[in-house]
Design a protein around this nucleic acid. Sequence first.
DNA 1: AGTTGGAGTTCCGTAAGGGAACCCCAACTG
DNA 2: CAGTTGGGGTTCCCTTACGGAACTCCAACT
Lengths: 166, 166
Amino acid sequence: MQRTNFGELVCSIARTLDVIGEPWSPLILRDVWVGMRRFDELQADLKISRKVLTERLNHLVDHGVLERRPYDNRPRYEYHLTEKGTELVDLLMVMKGWGDKWLAGEAGPPVLYRHHACGEIADVELHCTHCDKPMHATDVDVLPGPALQLLEAATDERVEPQPGRR
Amino acid sequence: MQRTNFGELVCSIARTLDVIGEPWSPLILRDVWVGMRRFDELQADLKISRKVLTERLNHLVDHGVLERRPYDNRPRYEYHLTEKGTELVDLLMVMKGWGDKWLAGEAGPPVLYRHHACGEIADVELHCTHCDKPMHATDVDVLPGPALQLLEAATDERVEPQPGRR
DNA sequence: AGTTGGAGTTCCGTAAGGGAACCCCAACTG
DNA sequence: CAGTTGGGGTTCCCTTACGGAACTCCAACT
């Protein structure tokens, strides 16, 4: 087996990593989010190898996170976030918060978010979609969901036929 | 320059990636979070190369995300999340939500979260730390923060000495 | 006709991941 | 007390992927 394919694991984290887990992908997303849309612009900002930038952009376009839009009648393209990609930015915002808290040091945060709804500088916090209260790692039980239950049922069937095993 | 070091960029996203951006790291974190603590257990679950697992565990320990605890009087260790690591799990929870929504397909989510506070199956959503309303990619302006302002001031000083440039 | 500029491609050298075998050492086992 | 077991790594080799720099393509200026 060559380099592992996270996309095939039955795990939403692994599948998400399959889309943006490769080196540079989150930073490309960040740049596109804040308005850098063109190949050379991205390349100059990130100082990424052009080869890898090409690969990453294609990958992100293939997965529906970015969309390629012509911006001229000659073959020139801009990259824009799709809805799927825009929702991925949630992830970046959480990374930003964690990095600010644990890694920024004396100098403080490199960037700030101003929330349109209240006009204040703020960060994101995770809340429960059901009761709206904060919801973090230690506030939940992790239970098998439908996809895992299906898998387990399939496994049981294959195990059933040989009883007498204890 | 060899492989790029994200940690040196003035960007909390890049710095966070420096800690958990390498392949496998988020999945290792996930496993430790749900209670897998030992080398062989992680290796068997992830089918990761032992070499890389060693490297990743050391990296995560070095960065204070995991802590290595002896669990026997012979040299045996378990890996536990630190507070810093526990807060990183926020990221995994957001990934899980995105993966569930955009990649899970027919079979539905592999796992579910039950929120202790309300007892219900739920997911996370991002809210503003200031006004508590939802806060996503399109709800904010991104502004330069203290660390970037420092950088800009330093750059200006270096540019000032040659006026006449317009 | 010649240059420019955006958007890639190609090529090469090095570094990182995969796999499997090997090692160390404290505790059991007979 | 020699031999086995098992957790937790190391070592080695091979292949793939990244970094960097040069090259290509092609539509528009000049």
